[in-house]
């Protein structure tokens, strides 16, 4: 039963991914164009920050995705670890580079926002530090995958690391509340409603949708790549095994 679902799932996944991928790419493209149009041309400048508030539309969704990707990676890792589900392992593995990319984007755009607003590219502040640690957690996770040749063992060990590292996600979320921070606290997901004007929420939500769709498209594509790469590796190994038997058997060698 378990082995059947393990064999069947990558194929069913392939079918699902092929069906969903074009839509994800399409939604990403449309929302990205619309979101950037609103963000750059059709939304007001901030009364304090001026035009530089537009960095928010690239920065905030990237920061959200950085945490979202890590959370999904930890959940996929837990699923893979508990139920030994290979597809969940592949999902966790392929989420990491994308999440690291979003984390880097959040830090990079944050630096460009921090320079005009705070007067410094970087400050050793709780929010910035914890997001930087998130980037290093992603890198450590990817390094562990790379270091272990056996995929099954690599998946289990990397899953443990991802679950342990999840402790950082709530620290990032609450860092602006627990410590005195230059970084502003949450202004959208609040109990008393958003404190941002509606004209700025439209581009922000468009950009979040764009990043989510982009993440979906990239994740599906890289998971498919990984599955194909594994199949190729298996075929190579089978081919190697076949040639070595041919060489070892005298009658087969004389035939060739």
């Amino acid at each position: 039963m378990a082995s059947i679902s393990e064999l069947a799932n990558p194929q069913r996944f392939e079918g699902l991914a092929q069906a969903v991928s074009p839509y994800a790419v399409g939604v990403a493209f449309i929302t990205l164009v619309a979101g950037l149009y609103y963000a750059l041309f059709n939304s007001p400048a901030d009364y304090q920050q001026g035009e530089s508030v537009r960095i928010m539309y690239v920065h905030v969704p990237a920061a959200w995705m950085a945490m979202f990707c890590y959370s999904s990676m930890a959940i996929a890792s837990a699923v893979g670890f508990i139920w030994k589900h290979p597809l969940a392992d592949v999902a966790a593995k392929e989420t990491a580079p994308i999440g690291a990319g979003f984390t880097f984007l959040a830090l990079f755009t944050g630096a460009f926002w921090g320079k005009p607003m705070w007067g410094a590219w970087w400050v050793w502040d709780a929010r910035l530090t914890s997001v930087l640690i998130l980037l290093f957690l992603y890198l450590g996770y990817m390094a562990l995958w790379q270091a272990i040749p056996d995929k099954i063992r690599a998946a289990r060990l990397a899953a443990i690391l991802a679950i342990v590292g999840f402790v950082n996600v709530p620290i990032i979320k609450f860092s602006v509340d627990w410590w005195n921070s230059l970084h502003q606290p949450a202004s959208i997901l609040r109990a008393d409603g958003p404190t941002i004007d509606g004209s700025m929420l439209t581009p922000l939500f468009l950009m979040i949708a764009a990043y989510m769709a982009l993440f979906t498209a990239m994740l599906l594509q890289s998971m498919r790549n990984e599955l194909v790469a594994r199949r190729v590796a298996r075929l190579d190994m089978a081919a190697d095994a076949a040639t070595s038997t041919l060489v070892e058997t005298p009658s087969a060698a004389s035939q060739s």
């Binding site: 530090t129 290093f136 890198l139 450590g140 390094a143 270091a147 690391l161 342990v164 590292g165 950082n168």
Partner: peptide
Amino acid sequence: ANLLISIIVAPLYAP
């Protein structure tokens, strides 16, 4: 594995 251990453990040591 020393370098790998360092990379893995450094972010966990930060707090």
